[in-house]
Every structure is written in C-alpha cells, then in structure tokens.
Design a protein around this nucleic acid. Structure first.
Lengths: 195, 195
DNA sequence: GGTGCGATTGACACGATGTCAACTTGACAC
DNA sequence: GTGTCAAGTTGACATCGTGTCAATCGCACC
C-alpha cells in the first residue's frame, strides 16, 4: 500500500481491467495479466495475495476512476420517486458495461472461492442499497405498488437489474445499450409503481 | 441398497443428480460422483467421455424421469394468451428447483468448456421455445404490449424466467417457491400484457 | 559500501480433469 | 474345462492454473 509502487500497482489494475473487458470476463489467467503489465507472474503476488484480491481491487479501482459516487449523487436529487427510480436504472445500467468483465470473473470464482464470494457480496450490498433508496423514495411518494413489501420490492429491483440479466439481453440477445436502458426503465416502473 | 440392481449408467446419473441437488450445484467432483455411484473414478469415463457429457446426460435423464413433455402439454391447452403465459410461468418455475443443481454446474462450466456451453445453450433454446409460444399466444389474442416486438418480448420473458433470477430470489433473498411463482406471474403479465 | 525494496528466475506442491496400461471377475458359449 | 467378452479395478501419469519458496539481481538512498 505504500505510495512508492503506485505505478506498477496501477499498471496491474489497468491491465487486469483491459484484459477482462476485452475477453468478456472469460479465462483471464494470472500469467496473462502479468504479461500485460510487463512483470513476472510471481511479481503479481508481491502486490496482491491472490486472484480474488486482485479482482476486488480492480472493482474498487474502477469505482474510483469513474467517480461512481458523483454519478450516484444525481439520483439523490430527483424530484419524485418515479424519477429517482428512472435515474437509478439509467446510472447503474450504464455502469454495468464498465465493470462487466471484472464482475463476471468475480462471479465465476464465487462458486469455489470463499473470499471471492465475500468480495462480490460486498459489491452487491452497495447496489442493493441503491435499489432500496429508490424503493423508499417511491414509498414516500405513495407510489409503491401494494402487491409487495418494501423488502420484496428491493429484492425484485435488484434481481431485474442484475449483471446476469444485462449480459443476457445485451450480449446473448444482442440488444443495444440504449434499448436495454429504455426497457429496464419501463419494466421496473411497471413492476414497482402503483398503477 | 436398493440401488444395487439398477444398471450402472442409471446409478451414475441418479447419483450425479442427488449430489448436485444436495450441494446446490457447487463443487461436485468426478471422484465424488464415482464414490456415490460406488464405482471407481476411472469407470465413470467408461460411461461418459467427460464431465460436460455427464452433466448434459443428467439433464436429459431428469427431463425423462419427470416427464416434462406431459407437463408442458398443459399450457398448450390454455383458453387465452394470458392464461397460457400464467401456466407457462408456473410450469417452468416449478421445474427449476429440480434441475437447478445440474443447471448451475453446467452454467459454471460454460465459461471454460466449449462443449458445456453448447449443451447448456441447447437447453436454453428449448426454454426459449416455451417463452416464444406464450408470446405468440398473447399476440394472437391482441394482448401483447406494443412497446416491444415479439422477439424482444421473448427475450424479456426468457430473461425474467432465468435460472439465475430464480436462484437470486429463492435462495439469496429467501423467497418461498409459492411467492416466487406468484410474483413472476404478476411481473410477466405487467411486462408483456397490454394494459 | 551497505541496506532495503522491487523484481526476476526456477522449482515445486496441490487439486481437478482426463488418459493409459495391465489385471481381475463373472457370464456365457462351445 | 477353456476361451472370450464386457465391465470394473488399481495405479501411474500428463496437463493446467493457482499459489509458495528460495536464491539472486539491480538500484536508489544514506
């Protein structure tokens, strides 16, 4: 963590991201990352104890580089609950492509690696928080459907906006990003807003 | 053991299913399956050339045992498009728990194994077909929303009804199976039926 | 000239899949 | 009985990716 080795560390994180981005999260090995960062495979372990840690650090690096907090501030200033939901869907939905590669790699590791599971779960909690806030804003406006509790509505929103769903629509079904955002805004409104 | 008489191949498939079912699809090795089927690990390879083939054969075995075709016939006799959608969501949604273990293992392999990807894709096509038929029934009734094409509606339905979404709601969020079915019937109706 | 740090090379353990060769066992035919 | 075939067994081994370890190197800094 010392400030001296930032260049190398940054180079590693950047390379990791680029490789995962390019390969759509599939089969990126530690040796590939090392090669891309122009260091030896072993040197990777001088900076990150294991693959899970490297991937987690990469998500944090991306959050930092893209200043995700600033973008989220936008949804906080929404005039109504429905507007807040709309902005939240758009903001998160447009951030997914950026983190997709890393997210996929982390999700794949989740099955076997305890640490990776915890790391990814941590990220999910942050997103769930955004979903919860949107649901609360709807509730405050009296606009939340009465077929669900606040918690269920949050579960539902989080599920609809999952990375896997984005992957399926955007990549498997070949939707455009704009179409994805549009349809998700419509779907979440239909699902959560009282008619 | 009552399983003593069952032919080896069937014993393997049954053991595979039981292990994947119990372990929620996580970390079931070839050696575990062999042990459960009371044969040597190497003998597994006398029946199935590799892990992907074994998993695929297991899904077919499950389809056969549960006579999934008969269950699907039910939705074909629905009176209206909306009813057909409702029955389709219920039928498929209630089949997911059965195949979940195998599905998850197959999905995990998909990333690295070409054959596993093809096998799982094959299964998805069958499910997509069910979704498409439901959408067509809605269209025929003039009940399909006009915010989407038939193809997009099919993509959307397939995505909403994904195994991953079931996992998230049923397992991660701890919803009951009945609640899952109920909410998915509501959500798919809101998403696809013209209001 | 040391000291310490980042990095390198090379070797190795581990766990999982998949392969191979040689041997055993039981059923059945002749 | 003997021969044969199929199915199963044991044990060894290749491969691949992660993670570890030891020895060494080069360089900036004091």
């Amino acid at each position: 963590m010392s400030s001296q080795n930032i260049p190398t560390r940054d180079r590693i994180l950047k390379s990791t991201w680029q490789l995962l981005e390019a390969g759509n999260g599939s089969a990126v090995r530690m040796s590939d990352i090392a090669k891309a960062a122009k260091i030896s495979r072993q040197a990777l372990y001088l900076h990150f104890p294991n693959r899970a840690d490297l991937l987690t650090a990469t998500t944090r690096y991306l959050d930092e580089v893209h200043d995700i907090d600033a973008k989220l501030a936008k949804s906080r200033s929404a005039a109504s609950g429905t507007q807040r939901l709309e902005i939240w869907v758009e903001t998160w939905g447009n951030y997914i492509p950026t983190i997709f590669g890393v997210a996929k790699a982390l999700m794949a590791m989740q099955e076997t690696d305890e640490e990776a599971a915890a790391a990814w779960n941590d990220r999910i909690c942050a997103i769930r928080d955004g979903c919860e806030k949107a649901v609360q804003a709807l509730k405050a406006d009296g606009a939340l459907t009465d077929s669900m509790s606040e918690e269920e509505a949050t579960d539902m929103l989080l599920t609809i906006l999952s990375v896997r769903n984005w992957e399926q629509l955007r990549i498997d079904c070949n939707w455009t990003q704009a179409r994805y955002i549009d349809m998700m805004q419509q779907l979440t409104a239909k699902a959560l807003v009282k008619s």
